[in-house]
Design a binder for these strands. Structure first.
Length: 375
RNA sequence: GCGGGCAUCGCCAAGCGGUUAAGGCCUCGGAUUGUGGUUCCGAUACGCGUGGGUUCGAAUCCCACUGCCCGCC
């Protein structure tokens, strides 16, 4: 995977006062302007959004899941259709998660050994097995631009011994992932683990940095820990990863998380929150997260956020969307999903502009307090 | 006019003499971070149609009244 000619990362600007950066990641399916937010499309669909909606949010890359696609409809079927891009008719970049996280967070009765993980399919109870080689085979069948290493995510809280074991196993699995990964038109990102111990995180960052990868990820966060702890850990870890490569903070996050992450040198984020929150009736605004069912919006003729350019905000009032939500209309979830997804993408793109124009700190300060106050 | 039945939170409704009157819907709040696709959690009756009575104790038993429902004339 050395000097992969299908990928390159251009670091356009590094903020002078913080660790924020702006860049472009070139991939086989197009460029990604970083920092970037990636909507999550677990089952090869971003929930509630059609391709048309997704394009309107100006998503440049989306994430999908090996774990779920392996179970249904099976990576071999998607391979027969020419890979994920053709399968879902999405010609921009795609990143797939390895299945590591899902095996630990979703599958009940999982049984982990040095070789891999045996687990039961949540709904049917059927038994399956994934290890580093199988994860690589799945992801190479699916054919996303970026594949992720098969790692072991430690829970929070986690004692030191178990954190060490999970981290060391992740490193051994990483070696196997790189050996099994042969597709040159696909990048493989290694992942930092080490739970919430500074020395382990530092060690892990050092170990994965020895691999010549297109980009590097920080995993094992947003598993229930306090925000300050997550920020501390990112602040500690990000600078230890190669400066000339994109850094991906997995599973994050909220508007505040994006702001804090970018400030500490993170370039890529993904999170289920915009679409899950939408289905559960809440929406992002520059004044914090709000809940559409609240009575205060009963007669509110204004859009979800006055500064948003999304389809929902350009066409509908809070009162209307609240009514749809209360009636159980799927359109409410669709409109809120469009808004939340566009909100994060626009928010981080505005952040990028501020970095390019040397005013990131100003941007940070002008948003962080009001977001914190309202959230 | 006579006989019978019912009256418990905005709605439906359990309770049939004994601690703080179930539950559901609605309402109001809150959760959610590499997604188990309308989810999960919490709050809300100082009172059981009204007035008396029996009892140590009554939404629960008795009487009257009021309202609604069903028969009969």
């Amino acid at each position: 995977m050395k000097n992969n000619k299908h990928f390159s990362f251009e670091l356009l600007k590094e903020d002078k006062k913080t660790h924020a950066r702006a860049g472009i990641l070139h991939t086989p399916h197009g460029d990604i302007e970083t920092p970037i937010f990636m909507p999550v499309g677990t089952h090869s669909a971003v929930k509630m959004l059609t391709k048309h909606h997704l394009e309107e949010t100006k998503a440049q890359i989306i994430l999908s899941n090996s774990f779920h696609l392996f179970l249904h409809p099976g990576n071999k079927l998607i391979k027969e259709f020419g890979g994920l891009h053709k399968w879902m008719n999405w010609d921009k970049p795609i990143l797939t998660d390895s299945g590591g996280f899902q095996v630990f967070s979703l599958a009940h009765l999982n049984n982990i050994t040095e070789d891999g993980v045996k687990f039961k399919e949540p709904k049917t109870g059927d038994e399956y097995y994934i290890n580093p080689e199988i994860s690589m085979e799945i992801q190479q069948d699916l054919g996303p631009d970026i594949a992720m290493a098969f790692d072991q995510c430690a829970p929070y809280p986690c004692d030191y011994d178990n954190a060490v074991k999970a981290m060391e196993r992740t490193h051994r699995w990483l070696e196997r992932c790189f050996k099994a990964h042969t597709r040159e038109d696909q990048a493989l990102f290694p992942i930092v683990q080490g739970a919430f111990f500074d020395d382990l995180r530092q060690e892990s960052a050092k170990v994965i940095s020895t691999y010549d990868a297109v980009g590097y990820a920080i995993g094992g966060v947003s598993v229930g820990e306090p925000t300050e702890l997550k920020n501390h850990l990112v602040e500690l870890t990000a600078p230890l990863l190669p400066n000339d490569k994109p850094r991906y903070l997995m599973g994050v996050g909220t508007p505040i998380d994006l702001l804090e992450g970018v400030k500490r040198g993170v370039d890529m984020f993904d999170c289920v929150l915009p679409t899950r929150n939408a289905r559960h009736g809440s929406f992002f605004t520059y004044e914090g997260r709000k809940i559409i069912k609240n009575k205060q919006f009963e007669k509110d003729p204004s859009p979800l956020d006055p500064n948003c350019d999304c389809y929902a905000c350009q066409n509908h009032s809070k009162a209307y969307i609240r009514h749809l939500y209360r009636m159980g209309e799927a359109t409410a979830a669709i409109l809120l999903s469009i808004h939340n997804t566009r909100f994060l993408i626009k928010f981080i793109h505005d952040m990028r502009d501020s970095i390019l124009e040397d005013r990131f700190e100003e941007f940070y300060n002008s948003h962080i307090n009001i977001l914190k106050k309202e959230s």
